[in-house]
Design a protein around this nucleic acid. Structure first.
Lengths: 218, 218, 218, 218
DNA sequence: CATGAATGAGGTTTCATTCAT
DNA sequence: AATGAATGAAACCTCATTCAT
């Protein structure tokens, strides 16, 4: 009944921690069982096999992620602001869940098996959310309409993934949140200088002399 | 002596192909030996162990990559053009080397062991090249100086990696080169609309009517 | 009380079906429990363990078999006719109980553990019946007295077992009853040609006259 | 080269002994390896898996069996004598190879998997030999022509298998060869008394005269 | 240099059985 | 009586690596 769900969570939590310490192949079921405080066999009453256990992690986590993301975006109207919030929450989430981050970013995200598995559904859900924001921005007229939405999403997610991935590979030493504003800025405005705009910045601080030229934006 | 180099290449080439078909753990030395037409033991006369063989792949490949990249950039002066060329060559290279691409993008790029290994040197070399271009752009005044160079590089490489990774995961069906121009454009100009700029586009075609409207768009 | 017997039968019936589908080791208690519509633990309230359950099958079945056999033999006087009836019923029984037949003929019959178990009692009972018929035949003077009774039984049972075993191994496709008359004939008269008898009987023609001809056998 | 064949035999011999002590499932590879004096992994260089090793046993043994059988039958002309020799050799062979006998008679002979495997070929070869003898007997006019050859073979093999099987199940205590003559006799002449023949031969007395007495049987 | 036979550690998974509810 | 969650032992098989030839 309720106990069963609890036991499942107990195993899943152990799996997140242990899988997060090394990779799928180097992680043993016995280690996870020990961590969860159950017998090895017990794991197989809740999960079909090792891979099922592994892929069950994002099944749970992406649900939480997407739900929280929706909450954070609620009330924000300007799509550019939504993108900033999106980026912020993305970084924040992985900083808060480093074990999960390692599994997701360094293994599942690049796994064909994962992409083909049912657990990928949650990731697709999240990717739709990203796309929706960009689309909304186009409708609002604040996001470029001359470019493919999917490509724009590549930029957004690619930049975020890259930042998180490098952070993980380097041992999670720095505070990844520090780059949040500049990164949002970059995504929104690109790397090149363009005359006369202040793009979608919201912090109010001048980005540079360029903006002084420009007319002032909302 | 020359024969030795040949034999080594023979094994390396087999390794690229076999490692490229599945991942490190699911690839066996015997398979590679069979492919290379040598005995298993022979591999251990040219490479310390399986991981050494695996990591030796980028050691060779990144050298070629960087050298070629230099050639392609030679003669181009505008840093924005260099970035376009960089993006073009990046996509072009991985399309031309799909076996290697799979190993590099889906495994090594996210491997701590690789990041700590000596073979990572080649990747660093390449990353310096990216940074150098951005720096040059700043000096030329065509790349934003208000933002961290490293962060800009995250944007550039993240977008490219993301595109290539998705392409690989989806089975390399589409022609990845098609997105080259729009992607460069996005990297240079971001996703948001900004008034009155001439950005870094070089194709001459208008990106969209938005720009024609001029400044006042909110 | 009556319910208890019912529940037991319910499990036993499930066991016959499931054990009959594959062998002892490849059959799981959970499968049987599922088939019987009870929990796994329930099985252990009616049977000591898996082997006890398995061996309980012949305990029930041989009882029925022997009782039915007695009925079929009742009224038949000529031992040779009894042997024919015996063969007929033997084949008939296994054709009617293929699940049980597979377990008994392909597993229990060749199992030392079964031979040592208490459940073997039923089989012995049946073997006595076979011996009794042969003995009766000797007393009647219709069965050879120069040969060991046990060896004669080997011939009788061996031929029958062999026919049934081959039939089971080949997927129970043919109608095993078709060979009944010829097989009885063979058992009674052997494979070699011998002068002046009516060995090749196939129907209800009297067999008695042969004996009248020549009692004098070595 | 030759060493490889030797090593294979070494493992096979150990397998015969260990498999012969208990059944397939209760026998472990490690036990066989220990007995053979090799590492567990070595076994898998010569045999695909446990079942392959198991089924390889009859692959070798049936070859020897059939070859030897041919030798023993050479020179014997009367088909009935051949049957006697067949029975004698059958019993002799299994008495000489009790370990193998246990595996073959108590496991493989009743295994569907074995019947479907390639190793069954040897058994079929042997069964053809039996059939050939019976056919030859029919052509000689010494074996009944009114009955199905295959059924006659059932009688022959069934009786022999049954004798051997019971002997194995009872611990191989008696001398199985003792029953050889009577058994052959039974197979040739059946259990029933028939007039005017000398069915119950037990020694070297000519069997030919019987036929003289009564020529044509149906 | 090349070979490939031999090694043996190590992990996933199954499943009969128990026992608290 | 009935349940079914929990157990944990046990074994097959793979494969990187070595080393004698």
């Amino acid at each position: 009944m309720n106990k069963k769900a609890t036991r499942r969570q107990q195993i899943l939590q152990a799996a997140i921690e242990i899988f997060g310490r090394s990779n799928f192949d180097d992680t043993s079921i016995s280690e996870i069982a020990r961590r969860a405080g159950v017998a090895e066999g017990t794991i197989y009453q809740y999960f079909k096999n090792k891979q099922d256990l592994f892929f069950s992690i994002p099944r749970e986590k992406t649900k939480t992620f997407s739900a929280q993301l929706d909450l954070y975006l609620k009330g924000v109207t300007d799509a550019r602001e939504k993108i900033r919030k999106f980026a912020w929450y993305y970084l924040h989430f992985f900083r808060t869940n480093p074990d999960y981050a390692r599994s997701l970013m360094l293994e599942m995200r690049v796994s064909k098996a994962f992409a083909r598995s049912g657990s990928y559904k949650g990731v697709k859900r999240f990717m739709s959310q990203a796309l929706a924001i960009l689309k909304e921005g186009q409708e609002q007229g604040v996001i470029r309409q001359d470019l493919d939405l999917y490509l724009s999403r590549h930029l957004l997610l690619g930049a975020l993934e890259h930042v998180v991935t490098r952070w993980l590979l380097k041992g999670e030493k720095e505070d990844i949140m520090l780059c949040h504003e500049q990164l949002s800025d970059l995504i929104l405005n690109g790397v090149a200088i363009h005359s006369g705009n202040g793009s979608a910045r919201t912090t109010g601080k001048p980005i540079g002399k360029n903006r002084e030229n420009g007319p002032g934006r909302s």
